[in-house]
Design a protein around this nucleic acid. Structure first.
Lengths: 349, 349
DNA sequence: CTAATTCTGAGGTACGTACATCATACTGAG
DNA sequence: CTCAGTATGATGTACGTACCTCAGAATTAG
């Protein structure tokens, strides 16, 4: 059996109370005694029984996902995985909920963050574009003891705030390579379209995409990025103009997480099956297009993994543990109709 | 706060002892009372506190991975992830170890399974080719209360034994589509090589591969499968012969999880960069070849996910719970140099 | 050396569940 | 009605840790 606090006390030659003081960082213990206890922890390989600890202090974890107000299929998918995770994590005393409160104005986001009730929340997973205001607001939150992870949006390696999501530059590069190779050596122009280039995510994807196209596929020219601003009418219009003005278009890359509007616009004014079209994120819509050949590949991040990872990271931070890096790295997935999973391979057989 | 057994007792109008009898399926409770308690469980939404329960019965889970004796880089990677998982799961009283005891003889495998000490093990993750002998041996194990999952090898949906791994037919199909599209419309022959076709995995991958090639890429002809039998000398020989006899070879597909020998043989007798080459599984070796362009894509299953998933499934079975299906589905990953992760994108920048 | 202060020990209760024991209430058969 | 048998209640201990109080020991300052 694994050593307990009692064993620790005996091994260190101190009492249970002292072991407890050391373990929980309470004051009133001489440095020499602290060292003795830590030494015993090392020697015995003591690991605190988190279940028992949580039981004793009847610890619960309360986490909230703060999500954009606007959003389409990808966001729906995230929300449904949050619901699933809520069930699964309830057994471990992790309470999870979500709010669609994030707008596009940095000040509004900062306000939302500042209005969080510290007494009812241990951690927040924030899906919001970066800005100085948001940076400051999250810093304040953290100072007041609420752990924060940047969720999907934002950037890895930022001032000690955990990031859960993919490296968007690499995702764009991946899209670039798939598109380049699928173009089969043909030369021509590539339509690039997104919702808005204000989001850092889109910028980075575009960078990665251009890097690969420029370096490895000189016969392909990526056109300037079109922006739909989430408006179907506008999407239709700008796409129509693009195809009218550029007869050499042989493919398209949809940068944004929400791809439906752009893809519908493309299908409306051209023949998607004769082009190479790449989009991001798996949704009912992108699945369907992959299966009927209107979409050639989808670059995706697994929303279930995203959600669970964010929760695990928050929990680790609450327990003052390091997350398991390899488990929490979100993979950039490449989806074809062949690797969509059981439901789809079955349908095709 | 969440309801406890005490609340249950009060709500059902019975004593704690009776609640306990019902919860743990002990005898000596009238059916009417059982129903009353279950009714209260429903009404209050009672969920057993697993931490407290495990604490009380000082429950530990002891799982073992039974792995092939022979194996190269992929197996090493699996083993290293088992080690990592051992650390991570120790905090939750899950003890994990592994043994490299599985040979190729079904009777030997069955013997290994029959010699398992039931008193020291709660579950086994078995990586072994299927056979009637193994089927019987696992059935006996399960009857004696040891939970079993088929790990990587084997087949989904088999007699109620859980399977953790990818659908190999779909993996082969995925390889087929990537190879087909990367061939850029050129016609020619495709070398197909594996360690042995005795393993069901290889057969299924080949099926999936042929299905896609035959249906969607009629200009490509897949040659009969070559078998290296894990012998470098033999691999070199058969590959050399193949290239000598088939001047139209423009690509290669390495079926087996261990790809090194085959890829080295191909590089020795031909120019890998002028062909489209697809292999399975991510290893140091396949990573390197992806980065230097000798390999065009890798079809992979995440070994860390495999290991953790197997452990979670075994644990769920021990607790008599259903695993979370969506979390335990192993994705078929497509790896290019762009989506290998931080270490690699950084190196290229 | 004494007084003040800082450390440490001893002991208790609590968390939610499992499991054991013993007493008592109820049931139906004879 | 009685006896056996079954169903239920009451109560206690245990799991490993957190957290509290109080007494007493060790150390330091004056």
């Amino acid at each position: 059996m694994r050593p307990t606090t009692k064993d620790l006390a005996r091994a260190a030659g101190v009492s249970l109370a002292t072991v407890d003081r050391v373990l929980n960082g309470r004051a009133g213990v001489r440095q020499a005694t602290v060292d003795a206890v830590n030494d015993a922890i090392e020697r015995l390989g003591f690991v605190r029984n988190l279940s028992a600890a949580n039981l004793a202090r009847s610890r619960t974890y309360r986490f909230r996902f703060l999500l954009p107000r606007s959003g389409d299929l990808f966001l729906d998918s995230v929300v449904s995985h949050i619901e699933e995770a809520r069930q699964a994590f309830a057994a471990e005393f992790v309470n999870v909920d979500h709010r669609r409160e994030i707008g596009s104005d940095p000040h509004q986001i900062a306000r939302v963050l500042s209005e969080i009730d510290l007494d009812t929340l241990d951690g927040v997973a924030l899906m919001a574009p970066e800005s100085p205001q948001v940076r400051d607001a999250t810093a304040r939150l953290r100072e007041r003891g609420v752990h924060v992870v940047q969720f999907v949006s934002g950037q890895p390696g930022d001032r000690g705030v955990d990031f859960v999501g993919v490296d968007n530059r690499a995702a764009g590069a991946t899209a670039g390579r798939i598109l380049g190779r699928f173009c089969a050596g043909r030369g021509g122009e590539i339509l690039v379209i997104t919702e808005t280039m204000n989001a850092r995510d889109s910028l980075e994807r575009r960078h990665g995409f251009d890097l690969v196209l420029g370096r490895d596929f000189p016969n392909l020219t990526a056109l300037p990025t079109l922006e739909s601003h989430g408006d179907a009418e506008r999407a239709r219009l700008i796409v129509r103009n693009a195809y009218a003005n550029h007869r050499a278009i042989i493919g398209a890359y949809v940068l944004s997480s929400e791809a439906r509007l752009a893809l519908e616009a493309i299908a409306a004014v051209s023949d998607p099956t004769s082009q190479v079209i790449i989009a991001h994120e798996r949704t009912r819509f992108s699945e369907a297009l992959l299966c009927n050949g209107q979409l050639d590949a989808v670059i995706a991040q697994n929303p279930g993994h995203l959600v669970r990872s964010a929760i695990r990271v928050l929990r680790a931070r609450c327990d003052d543990r390091e997350p398991i890096a390899s488990q929490e790295e979100i993979r950039i997935e490449i989806l074809l109709q062949e690797n969509l999973g059981d439901r789809f391979t079955a349908r095709r057989a």
